[in-house]
Amino acid sequence: MTAALFFEQLLNGLQFGVTLFLMAAGLTLVFGVMGLINLAHGSLYMVGAFACAAVAAATGSFWLGLVASIVAAAFAGALIEMTVIRRLYNRDHLDQVLATFALILIFSEGCRFIFGSFPLFLDVPAILAGPITLPGGLPYPIYRLSIIVVGGLVALGLYLLIAKTRLGIRIRAGEADREMIAALGVDIRTLYTIVFALGAGLAGFAGALVGALQSVQVGMGEPVLILAFVVIVIGGIGSIKGALIASILVGIVDTLGRVSLPSLFGLFMDPSAANSIGSSLSSMLIYVLMAVVLIFKPEGLVSQNG
Score class of each variant (00 low, 15 high):
2 T>P: 15
3 A>I: 13
12 N>L: 15
13 G>K: 06
14 L>E: 02
14 L>G: 04
15 Q>E: 15
21 F>R: 01
22 L>N: 00
23 M>Q: 06
26 G>D: 00
30 V>L: 15
32 G>Y: 11
33 V>A: 10
37 I>N: 08
40 A>F: 02
42 G>T: 03
50 F>I: 00
55 V>N: 03
57 A>E: 14
57 A>T: 10
59 T>C: 07
59 T>I: 08
65 G>Y: 02
67 V>C: 13
68 A>T: 14
72 A>Y: 13
78 A>L: 11
78 A>M: 08
84 V>M: 15
88 L>F: 13
92 D>R: 05
96 Q>T: 09
98 L>H: 09
114 I>R: 11
114 I>Y: 11
117 S>C: 04
117 S>R: 12
122 L>N: 08
128 L>V: 02
135 P>S: 11
135 P>V: 02
144 R>P: 05
144 R>C: 00
150 V>W: 13
156 L>S: 01
161 L>Y: 08
166 R>M: 14
173 A>G: 14
175 E>S: 12
175 E>P: 00
177 D>L: 09
181 I>F: 11
186 V>W: 09
188 I>L: 14
196 F>H: 05
202 L>T: 08
203 A>R: 03
207 G>F: 12
212 A>E: 01
230 V>C: 13
236 G>Y: 04
238 G>L: 12
239 S>C: 10
245 I>G: 03
245 I>H: 00
250 V>N: 04
251 G>I: 07
252 I>A: 02
253 V>R: 06
256 L>D: 01
263 S>M: 14
266 G>E: 09
274 A>C: 13
277 I>G: 04
278 G>P: 15
280 S>D: 00
281 L>N: 12
282 S>R: 08
286 I>E: 05
288 V>T: 07
288 V>N: 05
296 F>G: 08
300 G>W: 07
302 V>E: 09
305 N>E: 11
306 G>I: 05
